[in-house]
Structures are given as C-alpha cells and as structure tokens.
Amino acid sequence: MISRMKSLLAFASAAALAMSPVVLPAKVQAQTAPVAQAASSLPAGANPDFQGLWRTSGRGVRGRDGSSGGCCSEEGWHDVPAMLLPWAQDVMAKRDAGLKSGVIVPTNTQECKPDGVPTVIEIPYPFQFLQSKNEVIIMYEADYQVRRIRMNGEHPKTPKLSWYGDSVGRWDDGVLEIDTVGLSKLGQTNWDGIPHSDQLHVVERYKMTAPGAMELTMTLTDPGTFTGPWTIVKHFRQLKERRLLEYVCAENNRDAAVPVE
C-alpha cells in the first residue's frame, strides 16, 4: 500500500514540521503568507479571504452526531455501518474481509483514481484556495486535483456525472457555502472506500473561526447509500508556506492489489 505509506510519510513529516522549533530570521518572517482573517474581524458585508495554503489540523473528523469516533477518525470506518444501507455495508464488509485475508479490495485512492468529492477533502495534504468574484478554485497537492466552484451559479437540471461533480457557491454571512451534486457513483465517500450513489449531495460550509483557522461543516445526503444526513466537522490551519509540492500518484505507485516485485 505504497500510496497509503506515502501519505503516512508526508503526514509524519508534516507533524514534524508543526513540532520543529524552526526560528526564522526576522526578514523571512516578514515575507510569510498573509494570515486569513476571521469573518468577525472584517467590515460588514466583506467576505473573508480564504486564499492561501491550508491543511487539516488532524484526522479528527467527527461522526454524524458530532461525537468522536465516527467516520474517518483514527478508528477508521468501523463505526460507520450503522448509517449505511445494506448494500453499502456489504461493500465495506468485503473490504474489511479483504484486509484480514490479504486479498485487498483496493480503494480509489489506492488505485490512483481521482479522489473526487468528497474524498479529496479528507486527504491530509495541503490545498490552496483561489478566489475571484465569479469563481472559487480549490487546488489540492494530492495528485494535482482541482475543483471549480461557480459563485452564485446554479446547477444544471441534469448535471453530467463526474468525479468532482457540479459545484456552486455562495457567501452566507462570511461563510463560504459550496453545494455539489452530479457526483458519479464511481467515486467514494472517503479514503476508506465507503461507496456512494449518484444521488450524493454534498454541502460544505467553510468558516474562518480565528486568524489562520478554518472550520468545515460538511453534510452528506445520499438516500441511495445513507440512512440519513451525515454531518462531518473538520478543522484546518493555514500554512505559512506558499508552495504546494508535486505529488504524482501514477509515479511508480503500486496499489495493494498488484504484487510488489
């Protein structure tokens, strides 16, 4: 599982970065990226500037009721089946059995398929927001994935199904709300491979909670897969660095289904 190992390596090094007592010369410090301001510190009517690099503050994603131990926590997806319809439970049970037997059922992430929405949101590599009046673009370090959000746009009546879906956005009292439909069932809900159907509807609400700190509240609705709406809260911190590094999944990357020679 090289892809996962790569992730863990980067994860570990990022943790080291957070802990390393790097003392910057004053001149260099002055050149760091501007810190995003919390919505509360902005003049009335102004939208916060999310531009810059962000990464997760940890994998501590919360369960549907806000409790810990739900999807994507360090415990993995084992608490999830309760909210999955039987067909999706079967998929996960097969994956689980594969992990035990060694006949792995690889996830999209392990096979270098696009993470797509919403899995890409969970990948612990940095990402960058670009903002203009009409568009918000999110660029992810993981495999050069890019999402486009049409601000104040509307979904087409029958969106073409794709990995990243059709995203429209709006500002709601300083909160960036992104609404995504048209997500192909080829995609998965997270990097543990929880499936979803073409009916998946993702609403993300990005809020600046403090300078350089961002909170995402994401609600997944998919009557084809989940027993009810599933709300996930995730925290991000802004990075001082200005560059996303290159990550190419297709590069000699092997997944667990292919014997390592």
Binding site: L24, K240, R242, N252
Partner: peptide, 27 residues
C-alpha cells in the same frame, strides 16, 4: 506493475529535513 520510471528524487537528506526546510525556503 510495469511502470519503471524514476521518481522525483528528494535531494535533501530525509523527509524530515524537507519538512523542516519547507518552512524556511518557501517563504
């Protein structure tokens, strides 16, 4: 499995060193 291309090499000593240096060089 047949893919045999060289990966981008990290010329710095280790990933850890990279992690520390990123904060210095990227600013």
């Amino acid at each position: 499995k047949n893919l045999n291309v060289s990966r981008p090499r990290l010329r710095g000593p280790t990933w850890m060193a990279l992690a520390a240096s990123v904060s210095l060089v990227a600013l």
